[in-house]
C-alpha cells in the first residue's frame, strides 16, 4: 500500500512534468488548429514553420549566438580562472564577488542594466549586443566550473614545468589544461544551454529584427499559432537527444572499458 501511494504520487508528478512536452509534440502533428482534439495527422505546421522567415532566422540566431558565446566565454573564463589561481587571495575574492552579480541578480535586473548601457554608448542593438550580453553572463559559469578543478591541482607541477624550461604559455597548455578538461567541458555545456535558453536578457538587449527562439515564442504566443508547437517540438527532440547522448556516453564508455578488462 505504501509503495502504491509512493509510485502513484511519483507517476502523477512525472505526468505533470511531461504533460506540456508530450502535448506540444503530439499537437504539432495535429491537422486542425484545435487545442483539445487530435483531428488527424499532418505535417502542415512544420511546413508553415519552414516557410516562416522569422522562425528560421530565430533558430539561426539562437544557435549562432550560443556557439559563439560558448566558444568565447569558455576560452576567456578558463584563461581568467588560471590567471586567478596564481594571483592573490584578495583579487580572487573580488572577482568572484563581481561574478556573483549576474548569477545572483534576477535576470531582469541584469537585462535592464545592459539595455541602458548599450543605449548610452549607442551601439546598434541586435546581434552584437545580444552576443556580448550572452558572453557576459556565461563567463562566470565557466569560471565556477573551472576554479574547483584548479584548486585541486598540485601547484608544484606548474612550478616544475616552469623550472624545466617551459614557457608559461606552454606550461598552461601542456600541464594545466589537460588536468582541468572536465571542468572546461562542464563550463562550456552550461554556457551553451544558458545561452540557448535565455529569454529575459536577450529580449531586452536585442533589436532590429534579431530574435532568438525564446523571443519568437514570446511575441508569437499572443495568438494561438500551432507552428510554435512545431518549432517547440523540434527543439524538444534536439535537446532530449543531446541530453540522452551526453548522459549515456559515460555509461557506454564505462561498459566498453569493463569489457576490455581495464
Amino acid at each position: 500500500m505504501r509503495k502504491l501511494i509512493k509510485n502513484g504520487y511519483l507517476g502523477l508528478m512525472l505526468f505533470f512534468f511531461y504533460l506540456p512536452i508530450i502535448y506540444t509534440v503530439v499537437f504539432s502533428f495535429n491537422e486542425s488548429k484545435s487545442l483539445s482534439s487530435f483531428t488527424g495527422f499532418s505535417l502542415k505546421w512544420y511546413e508553415k514553420m519552414i516557410h516562416s522567415h522569422d522562425m528560421l532566422s530565430s533558430v539561426f540566431y539562437t544557435v549562432a549566438i550560443a556557439l559563439l558565446a560558448t566558444a568565447v566565454s569558455t576560452v576567456a573564463g578558463t584563461v581568467t580562472a588560471i590567471g586567478l589561481s596564481r594571483s592573490g587571495k584578495k583579487l580572487r575574492g573580488i572577482v568572484s564577488q563581481v561574478n556573483d552579480l549576474p548569477i545572483m541578480n534576477p535576470d531582469i535586473v541584469t537585462a535592464i542594466g545592459l539595455l541602458m548601457f548599450f543605449s548610452t554608448i549607442s551601439v546598434k542593438k541586435g546581434f552584437l549586443t545580444m552576443l556580448l550580453a550572452h558572453i557576459m553572463f556565461c563567463i562566470p559559469y565557466v569560471m565556477l566550473s573551472v576554479m574547483p578543478k584548479l584548486r585541486s591541482l598540485d601547484p608544484n607541477l606548474l612550478d616544475a614545468a616552469l623550472d624545466l624550461g617551459c614557457t608559461p604559455m606552454k606550461a598552461v597548455t601542456k600541464v594545466i589544461v589537460p588536468q582541468i578538461t572536465s571542468g572546461i567541458v562542464t563550463g562550456a555545456l552550461i554556457s551553451f544551454t544558458m545561452s540557448f535558453d535565455d529569454f529575459v536578457i536577450s529580449y531586452f538587449v536585442t533589436g532590429n529584427g534579431v530574435n532568438n527562439i525564446s523571443i519568437i515564442v514570446y511575441t508569437m504566443a499572443k495568438r494561438i499559432n500551432p507552428s510554435i508547437n512545431a518549432l517547440s517540438a523540434v527543439i524538444i527532440v534536439l535537446i532530449t537527444a543531446t541530453l540522452l547522448v551526453a548522459n549515456l556516453l559515460p555509461i557506454l564508455h564505462e561498459k566498453i572499458y569493463k569489457q576490455k578488462g581495464i
Binding site: L14, F17, Y18, L19, P20, I21, Y23, T24, F27, S34, L35, S36, S37, T193, F196, D197, F199, I213, S214, V217, Y218, A221, I224, I228, N229, S232, I235, I236, I239, T240, L243
Partner: peptide, 29 residues
C-alpha cells in the same frame, strides 16, 4: 527524469501550458 524538462526552453513549456489551459483547451475539456 526530473531535470530533463528544465533543459527545454522555459518559454516553450510555458506556451504549452497556455494552450492546455485555454478556454477550448484540453484541461477544460
Amino acid at each position: 527524469l526530473v531535470t530533463l524538462p528544465t533543459w527545454i526552453n522555459m518559454l516553450v513549456r510555458t506556451y504549452a501550458w497556455r494552450s492546455i489551459l485555454q478556454e477550448n483547451g484540453i484541461a477544460v475539456a
